[in-house]
Design a protein around this nucleic acid. Sequence first.
DNA 1: AGCAGTATCAGCCAAATGGCTGAGGCCGGC
DNA 2: GCCGGCCTCAGCCATTTGGCTGATACTGCT
Lengths: 208, 208
Amino acid sequence: MKTITVLLADDHLVVRSGLKALLATQPGIEVVAEAASGEEALALVEQHGPAVVMMDLAMGAGMDGIEAIKRLRQRNSRQAILVFTTYDSDADIVRAVDAGAMGYLLKEASPEEIFAAVRGAVHGKSVMSAPVASRLFQQLRNPDAILTPREAELLSLLTEGLSNRELGQRLFISEATVKTHLAHIYAKLGVETRSAAIATAIRREGMR
Amino acid sequence: MKTITVLLADDHLVVRSGLKALLATQPGIEVVAEAASGEEALALVEQHGPAVVMMDLAMGAGMDGIEAIKRLRQRNSRQAILVFTTYDSDADIVRAVDAGAMGYLLKEASPEEIFAAVRGAVHGKSVMSAPVASRLFQQLRNPDAILTPREAELLSLLTEGLSNRELGQRLFISEATVKTHLAHIYAKLGVETRSAAIATAIRREGMR
DNA sequence: AGCAGTATCAGCCAAATGGCTGAGGCCGGC
DNA sequence: GCCGGCCTCAGCCATTTGGCTGATACTGCT
């Protein structure tokens, strides 16, 4: 059995070293590199070619995890990407899976879950923490409420208090398009105003 | 020089082991116990009597960090309590300091910061990450930012997504008055739109 | 009595938002 | 190849929101 090479991407030093220590207890798994940002992760993947990338979604300054995952996929590299993050927001899950993540783990996951996810990932298996799976399941039950990746992205920015103009600039689309997306989001969330959408989103997601 | 005994309280296993590994590199510091919840932390403090407690604020289910800190203080035990958490929300900082925390570190803190904080804590010194200190400073500098009771009431309803008309009906005041209050709230929060105010309010308070 | 802070309301105007209809391009499944 | 979903954009119009100025009234404090 080959050893599985792993790259860790997380802006928190203690998380990286904790995860590294945890994985070190497993004979078949080896952490070959650590990155503190999305940019660094891309460079180190290039350099080390790990079999698995464990990626935090929120990484302080610079490129976030979602963007890094997209870039990795664009290079059609064959790394299995596992999201390893704190919150289980609907929007993040959808966006991460859409970007090309193989699995979605929460930081409170048990060691066993983590090991299983890493081992499974190289064999093409998707593993996700129970709360994450449950959220995905709920979404599947009422498909009308599923936001498209673009809508989820927009909603996420919406909860930061941006105006339509700012949203457009941030996403490189016109204000008209922003309004169209918003109308769809309102319909799916069952609200009529931007404020209610923000309130709903923040309370229903783990958004911060 | 005595070794400094430390108890870690964090619901994330990887954070605990990462921090433990980090502290293990320092000769004068020893982690004597780990807790995954507030309740456990209280019990283990009782049992081990550590010199320093490093506590996460958000701990999944059960008692949160703030509550645990308060309980520890009530026993007038002599542990120095360091908050070690991910976010630097104004409300959390104020509440933690108020509850009796000696220092406030962010998880992205450098090893040096962490060591200094642990060593300082036993000597009664307060250490906090730069972004945290800056926030506290801002609050002290600018008492005008304190909302009046009526404004706070309005802000609370605002986070439920109500319109000006609805706010007025709910509070038995005219829409004009609602607008006046809102203008004051925006100024105090340093925002310009209703959306940003909602976002700020929900993130800065524990409002959920 | 006077002052500061809070809460209440009005009117005016500019800007942002929301509802509507319609439309083109792209892509994946049938 | 056609259809449906997604993303993009436009224009029109009603409503809402935000910025401004100014005003009255009650309170507590000095």
